[in-house]
Amino acid sequence: MKFPSPAASFDDPLGLLRDCHQRMEGFCETLERLQVHVRAHGVDDEARAAIARIQAYFNHAALHHHADEEADLLPLLHLRAVTHEAQMAVTGWAARIDTDHRALAASWAKLRDELTALTDGHRTGPSESAAFVAMTRAHYRFEDESVFPLASTLLTADDRVALGQSMARRRRAGLAENV
């Protein structure tokens, strides 16, 4: 029997970012199953609940995750990348992450509207879903395979503490805004 690994905490900010990617994968799988479910059962209570969970995650948690990377992780990596190769890699990653985040935000805006329309009975299924899922998967796989391994070697213990604290502050501020 395999038990899930415990969730990372703000003491392990890179682990926490990886855990966010695992949650994103779960929501991607839910979006894929949602298409099939809606065709077979319509927009029932189960579909509405799945849509609500997807929207809650991508309207809030995913935005914090992107800010964690853009406002905190990448600047730390720029600071710590002392070799020319590392500097070039981080600069390229920053450009790709910015482009990806913008494309994901645009795709999510369309998909969010489609999901809302679906719950209101105006559509048979979200057409943006496949594009959003593909972009999301390509993005987090790139970070997991390229960015995070180098970040693990470049970031100091103090950097990790600062990153974790900033991530925690962002979420506390987000909670206060949503009250």
Rank of each mutant, 00 (worst) to 15 (best):
H21W: 07
Q22M: 09
R23A: 04
R23Y: 02
M24F: 02
M24Y: 00
E25D: 11
E25Q: 11
E25T: 10
G26P: 04
G26F: 03
G26M: 07
G26Y: 05
C28V: 03
C28Y: 03
E29Y: 09
E29P: 02
T30C: 05
L31Q: 03
L31F: 03
L31W: 01
L31E: 03
L31Y: 04
E32V: 10
E32Q: 12
R33S: 13
R33I: 00
L34W: 01
L34Y: 01
L34Q: 02
Q35W: 04
Q35H: 09
V38F: 04
R39C: 05
A40E: 14
A40V: 12
H41Q: 10
G42W: 12
V43Q: 04
D44H: 13
D45C: 11
D45G: 14
E46R: 15
A47R: 11
R48Q: 15
R48Y: 07
R48A: 14
A49Y: 01
A49H: 07
A50T: 07
A50E: 08
A50F: 08
A52P: 10
R53T: 14
I54M: 10
I54V: 15
A56Y: 11
A56T: 13
Y57W: 10
Y57E: 06
F58R: 11
F58C: 10
N59I: 10
N59S: 15
N59C: 15
H60Y: 13
H60Q: 15
H60N: 14
A61M: 08
A61P: 04
A62Q: 11
A62M: 11
L63K: 15
H65Q: 14
H65G: 13
H66A: 14
H66Q: 14
A67F: 10
A67P: 12
A67W: 11
D68Q: 12
D68I: 06
E69W: 10
E69S: 15
E70R: 15
E70H: 14
A71H: 13
D72V: 15
L73E: 02
L74Y: 01
P75A: 12
P75F: 05
L77M: 12
L77A: 06
H78T: 00
H78I: 00
L79Q: 06
L79G: 01
L79V: 00
L79C: 01
V82N: 05
V82Y: 01
T83F: 00
H84W: 03
H84M: 09
E85M: 01
Q87K: 11
Q87W: 00
M88H: 07
M88D: 07
A89C: 06
V90Y: 00
T91M: 03
G92H: 08
W93V: 02
W93P: 02
W93F: 07
A94M: 03
A94L: 06
A94H: 08
A95Y: 11
A95V: 11
A95N: 12
I97Q: 09
D98N: 10
D98P: 06
D100W: 02
H101M: 07
A103M: 09
A103N: 11
L104P: 02
L104W: 00
A105F: 04
A106F: 02
A106T: 09
S107K: 08
S107V: 00
S107R: 06
S107H: 04
W108P: 02
W108I: 03
W108C: 07
W108Y: 05
A109K: 04
